[in-house]
Amino acid sequence: MAAFTPDSEADPDFRLVTNTFVTLFWRRNLLDECTAWLDEHGYQVTSLDAAAWSSKGDLLRGIGAALDFPDYYGCNFDAFNDCFGDVAAYAAYGIDPEATGLVLVFTDFDVFAAAHPESAHVILDIVADNARRAALFGRRVMCLVHSSDPQIELAPVGAMPIMWNEAEQSNASRRAG
């Protein structure tokens, strides 16, 4: 995939990765609109329900299965970093080579993060780091994180902050109404 062009600056994919490779969403309809746009523009959108994970092992197995990691995948963070790094480099697994890029979507991530804060941070950090590395080679990888908690705050990952999407940047925009 070629790098973005100056004409891309108004496109959702460009805006999502301008400041961070991991972006928060509170309203499901905004997330759904965004993922629909990305899907229509050739991205491989891989969605996972983080609320279903009750352990670090569930998280690692779930992502590994969704991205078709090889049989030798060890279901630990080092193995995830290795295999996701391969996916970001467009290995023989995890992403359709014809796709515009990969969008990893975690729904209800706040549920998992509340129960397993360290694992939640580590997985996002690995994803962000590999997404940044992929961008250096003109490959597009991003992570969209849905939270039912509009006040969630996550530590920076991949040496970059996790930011709210444009429509929900202000606290007022995330007040239940």
Results as ranks from 00 to 15, higher is better:
residue 23 T to H: 07
residue 60 L to E: 05
residue 80 F to H: 01
residue 56 K to S: 14
residue 1 M to H: 08
residue 127 V to L: 04
residue 90 Y to P: 00
residue 113 A to E: 09
residue 4 F to R: 03
residue 169 Q to I: 09
residue 106 F to A: 07
residue 74 G to M: 03
residue 177 G to P: 10
residue 131 A to R: 11
residue 151 Q to F: 03
residue 92 A to R: 10
residue 15 R to Y: 00
residue 30 L to A: 07
residue 99 A to G: 06
residue 152 I to V: 15
residue 26 W to F: 15
residue 120 A to V: 02
residue 72 Y to E: 07
residue 52 A to M: 12
residue 127 V to G: 01
residue 89 A to L: 08
residue 93 Y to C: 05
residue 108 D to G: 07
residue 154 L to T: 08
residue 70 P to D: 03
residue 148 S to M: 09
residue 67 L to T: 01
residue 13 D to T: 09
residue 96 D to R: 09
residue 127 V to K: 03
residue 100 T to Y: 00
residue 47 S to M: 08
residue 14 F to E: 04
residue 145 V to C: 10
residue 95 I to K: 02
residue 159 A to Q: 15
residue 74 G to F: 04
residue 32 D to N: 14
residue 150 P to C: 08
residue 97 P to A: 01
residue 78 D to L: 03
residue 97 P to W: 05
residue 108 D to C: 12
residue 3 A to E: 15
residue 106 F to H: 07
residue 49 D to E: 12
residue 32 D to S: 10
residue 118 E to S: 14
residue 46 T to F: 00
residue 68 D to F: 02
residue 76 N to P: 04
residue 169 Q to Y: 01
residue 159 A to F: 11
residue 62 G to D: 01
residue 54 S to K: 04
residue 45 V to Y: 12
residue 81 N to S: 12
residue 7 D to S: 14
residue 176 A to R: 15
residue 156 P to F: 13
residue 128 A to G: 02
residue 3 A to K: 15
residue 14 F to T: 00
residue 170 S to H: 03
residue 25 F to S: 09
residue 24 L to R: 13
residue 76 N to V: 07
residue 151 Q to L: 08
residue 99 A to V: 05
residue 37 W to S: 00
residue 71 D to V: 01
residue 165 N to D: 10
residue 163 M to Y: 09
residue 111 V to K: 13
residue 173 S to I: 01
residue 76 N to E: 12
residue 63 I to R: 00
residue 146 H to E: 12
residue 151 Q to M: 07
residue 4 F to C: 03
residue 56 K to H: 03
residue 144 L to H: 06
residue 94 G to S: 08
residue 67 L to C: 03
residue 66 A to L: 01
residue 87 V to H: 15
residue 171 N to I: 02
residue 109 F to R: 00
residue 176 A to W: 14
residue 138 G to M: 01
residue 51 A to W: 14
residue 77 F to R: 13
residue 11 D to A: 09
residue 87 V to W: 15
residue 57 G to F: 07
residue 102 L to Y: 05
